[in-house]
Design a protein around this nucleic acid. Structure first.
Lengths: 390, 390
DNA sequence: CAGTCGACCGTTACCGATAACATGCTACCA
DNA sequence: TGGTAGCATGTTATCGGTAACGGTCGACTG
């Protein structure tokens, strides 16, 4: 058979005129035409080549495309064919090459950008993200930011995009304006992003614990227990969470006419036990009548417990304490710590769901609008805040 | 220019005789030869197509291969060419597509299989793994096992391999024989695996904290402080770490002739604070003279502290306690906890280094032999074990 | 009974980077 | 001055999967 085709390579504007001689194996005479310097490539077979879609296709007697359709649960495959292909897949133990899929934009991988996973909150969140992603058949590419105050994460983002991930979970706290670049960048890239625990704004998808509500819950509980001079040790106010918890505390104090001299009831910590310790000492110096403290996390509450003991204050008789986080240890502090449980597991799963939906809807072409989910935290009452005498 | 080539497609044994007419853009007359039914493909340009190696090549006036060589720091590029290419890369903000690289076996990605990252040790380890991997330019695909006692992780491994990862870090504890399948599987796959915190064996690469030494450190410290009846609350004995710590304790007791009635000095916990609490009560019931406890982790030590307080034992006067892990909270327990710091950061980094070397040496073709690295833990002395009266 | 439609399946051209191989050129030697 | 070694660079095929498109065939319609 003799045929002629024009092939074009647009990128370099070179046209190739190809005169094509198709010879079947039955025409060995053709070998005579070959110049000796044009070697026939020996059939390179890898030693124990992995099983690919081609092997499956060959064994099932169909084309690779049909196998691909079966793999992706496309509707246009006859039931019988589908069954046969699935059998062969099973039999050969075939697993699709994700890199090849990624090249075509279906990597089934999410990027997670997180920080501080050696601490309870972030690691808990990450664990629930992984679990939900796994359930949905998605893999996770993990990137950690060591110091969110100084590292912007631009390299991190670039790296994730280079891996052809299909969506991004951004679990780094917004500190100051360390994220402005990202909001701009998001306009250009067409990979959906969902944020965790961040200040809501109209143009992003996000899920967050209602820290304001949490701050209210903690403070209101202290008010109800009869405490009248309720101080706070905040987290770093560059953190949105810390500001929200502070605001909740302020609101409740104002509601109960306890906000006179409110400045003297505030102390600024940095999440560490040491700063809780220092915070209590500072508060005691400022507010003589102090009888309760809302610590913005459990670690600081632990530092406060230690400081209280050292200055001879008994908890909860002289001083009540409420923490935030409900780390597993807090039930075993002495006394056991009243605290706010955040619902981080729920938040992690929710964000993955949101991202998944976003990816799905993008696939079928519809643009989906930003979405916000709030997680309601929960008060866990233990001994550190209960004073039967009052 | 006229040239002829032989192309072969081994898979279907069809030979193509290609007569190649190279026409530059300056030869539009050639269009006359085109049959109307052979359409020139319209140049399909994505809306805002990402920058690929081709764009860089074109702009730098070289071939894609040369760009690739520059990207991979291959030696055979002229200094001037290299500089120009790098300039263009910079200018266009080009980043290589990792999926495409993965397809060729150079995904620059490691798989991490871990469990329990909501706890301090694993999350700390994971953080240091990520940091070191990042420094080496490697990405991390994260897989978590929820329950290592029931989940084998075979699916997890398959998933990682499907992603064309170049190496695996296995940070799931060996419990019973939950890993036999993996040792077998490792024979077939040619992806290097490094294990974390596991019992050494000749045919695997691994890094582990010397838990036996840690157990000795803790116990010897108590002996030196003058305590004579030293109990232990172990972790679950299906865990290698727990067994090693127990063994260290046993050895020191035997060395000091304190191993009479040793059974009554043992209690079996499950890492949780609650089991520490229960463990102490059990020990007190068995051993009247008990004056110290080695808790196999800090969380159980916390439970023990609580239980001691409840039964009216003062720490460290009546009862000394040493923990294991050095979680950040332990310095703020009341009293602050003496404990063993594991060196998890070092372990994480070490395993990544080992895996990296293994990958590198594999690339240049040499087979590298299994390698074992031990991390030496460290005693952190705090108040819970210091009794000046003794 | 021609025409149309839809279900099913195959062919081809990519996706982006890289290994293998080919080629052009310079330098150096006999 | 021809030959050749070796450096720098280009060309092609390939990795494994999927989108786009085409073809076939039977059923149904007018």
């Amino acid at each position: 058979m003799l045929a002629a085709y024009i092939l074009t390579k647009p990128e370099n504007c070179i046209n190739l005129l190809v005169i094509l001689l198709t010879l079947t194996e039955e025409s060995p005479w053709f070998a005579g035409f070959l110049a000796p310097s044009w070697p026939l490539h020996p059939q390179k077979l890898g030693a124990v080549s992995k099983i690919t879609i081609k092997h499956v296709a060959k064994k099932a007697g169909v084309s690779t495309m049909t196998v691909s359709r079966v793999l992706n649960n496309r509707p246009d495959v006859a039931a019988e064919t589908r069954r046969r292909v699935q059998e062969v897949i099973e039999e050969l133990g075939y697993a699709p090459n994700m890199a090849a899929r990624g090249l075509k934009g279906r990597s089934r991988t999410l990027g997670v950008v997180a920080t501080g996973i050696e601490y309870y909150g972030p690691s808990r969140t990450l664990a629930s993200i992984e679990r939900r992603a796994n359930e949905l058949g998605l893999s996770l590419l993990l990137s950690l930011i060591t110091d969110p105050e100084t590292e912007s994460g631009e390299d991190t983002l670039a790296n994730l995009l280079a891996h052809q991930i299909e969506g991004i979970l951004w679990a780094v706290p917004e500190i100051g304006n360390n994220r402005e670049w990202l909001y701009e960048r998001m306009q250009e890239i067409d990979t959906p992003v969902v944020f965790l625990n961040t200040e809501p704004r109209g143009d992003i998808s996000m899920s967050a614990v209602d820290n304001f509500h949490g701050g209210r819950l903690a403070t209101r509980h202290l008010v109800e227990q009869g405490y009248r001079h309720i101080g706070i040790v905040t987290g770093p106010l560059s953190w949105w969470e810390a500001r929200q918890r502070l605001e909740g505390w302020r609101t409740v104090l104002a509601e109960h006419d306890m906000a006179a001299d409110i400045d003297k009831l505030q102390s600024y910590g940095d999440w560490s036990p040491a700063s809780g310790e220092a915070g209590l000492l500072q508060l005691l110096g400022q507010a003589r009548l102090l009888d309760a403290v809302f610590a913005s996390n459990d670690q600081m509450a632990l530092g406060i417990l230690k400081a209280a003991k050292e200055v001879g204050l008994s908890v909860p008789d002289d001083l009540a304490i409420v923490g935030f986080d409900d780390i597993p240890e807090s039930a075993y502090f002495s006394p056991p710590l009243t605290t706010i449980k955040q619902g981080l597991t729920e938040m992690g799963a929710t964000t993955v769901n949101m991202l998944y939906e976003s990816i799905e809807s993008r696939e079928i072409g519809e643009e989906n609008s930003p979405c916000v989910a709030w997680i309601t935290p929960q008060l866990i009452v233990r001994k550190s805040s209960i004073n039967i005498k009052r």
